[in-house]
Amino acid sequence: MNLRVPTAWFLSGNRSDSNYTVGVNNTVVGFQESEDLRIAHDVITNSILVLIILGMGCGITLDQFKLHLRRPTGVAIGLLSQTVVLPFASFALAHSLGLETEAAVGMMVMGVTPCGMMSTVFSYWVDGDVSLSFTISILSTLLAFGTIPLNLLIYSGSWTDKQFVIPYSSILVLVGMTTMPLLLGIFIRWRLPKVASVILKIGSYAGILLVALSLVMLSVLYPFMYWASWKIYIAAISYPYISFMFGYVVSALFKMENFRRRTIALETGMQNFTLCFAILEASFSHVTSDVMSVFPLLYGVNVRTAGFVFVGIYKFMEKYGPKPVLTEEAHHLKHANNHRESFRLEDQQTSKGFLDSEAAEENGES
């Protein structure tokens, strides 16, 4: 991501497209990011993200993935939200707010990208189904090879007839960055469960570090995003909460367990805004992509804040709200985060559930 100038087009007042002047008290606004700082930010955040994925992988098993593929209701809801509902919601919200062309395109591209990996650690913090989170994230990223160009073809015509360039190599990198440390974490849990429990906790703390670091660094590198118009602020702030609510309500309608509802809500609301930048930079000139990047940047800040609000509400309700009746599976998944011995119990429960589902299907066929 290499943004060079602030988005003058998004501010109130007059503008000059040729020299990026802004008619706010007749002041000319300009910004040049630090290339060294940007590179350091990218390297550090990617390294921490790999550590997070490794840590979260140490808390799950392959049998859990098999269960989600055998009973794909949660996966289907998450993928449907990502590939069908969110693109339409982005399209509708951009039109309802009357966003400028550049802001609307940035929001539209944001809406068609798959979910990001940070949703996994937030799911862990709310005692969600981490294996379901990984399943939705990986599958939505793989589907992005087709869903991104299709949705852009359907919706972007309202604002531009530009032929978008999809950075398929970036999508492959995302898949590799996710699956390799994930499989390593699963292997460590299988062979070294005591070590896995330690790495799991380290991954959780790394998630806190990454969220805090990204909030600070995005603000330092790209302060111009805070000069956006009120319409973009409304869109960037409301977008995560609308997505969270949709994911939770739909999963509740399908009678998913509470801990899976929380996971699906987070998966629905947390998009991969890094891939959004890659699409904008590959498709448009530096000047235009810089302008279009304001919404994704502001969204990147607000979605992390919204994630903490989500976690805070869950922790408050867990402590002071009515106590829900946990299923045996939800109980093991919750306590596996804190107790090494419960790894063994959870593995037994997951394997038993998988074998029971196999037996039920065989009996049904006979």
Score class of each variant (00 low, 15 high):
W227N: 15
F187H: 04
F254P: 07
L253F: 14
L298G: 01
T61R: 10
S90R: 07
G203P: 10
G78S: 00
S351N: 15
A330E: 14
V5F: 10
A265R: 05
H286A: 14
Y320E: 08
L99I: 11
I53G: 02
K201N: 13
V126M: 10
S140W: 03
Y205N: 14
C276G: 06
L54Y: 03
L326K: 09
V24C: 11
A235N: 02
I166G: 05
G128C: 03
I232N: 05
L174N: 06
M56V: 06
G364D: 10
V121N: 07
S197E: 02
P240I: 06
V211T: 15
E365P: 00
S357M: 10
V29R: 13
L182P: 11
M110C: 13
N25Q: 13
A235R: 01
T160N: 08
E358A: 05
Y239R: 13
M117K: 09
P167D: 03
V50E: 03
I279D: 00
G364T: 12
V249F: 09
S229T: 03
L280W: 00
L200R: 15
T178E: 01
T120V: 15
V22S: 10
R261E: 09
T288S: 08
R4T: 12
S131A: 15
I186C: 09
A265Q: 10
V309I: 14
P240H: 10
H68C: 05
R71W: 00
P72D: 09
F259S: 07
S47A: 15
V173Y: 09
R304G: 10
A196D: 01
T274K: 07
I148K: 00
R38Y: 08
S293T: 14
M245W: 09
Q32N: 05
Y239C: 07
M177E: 11
N337V: 12
V50S: 12
K162R: 08
I166D: 03
V216K: 09
N363S: 11
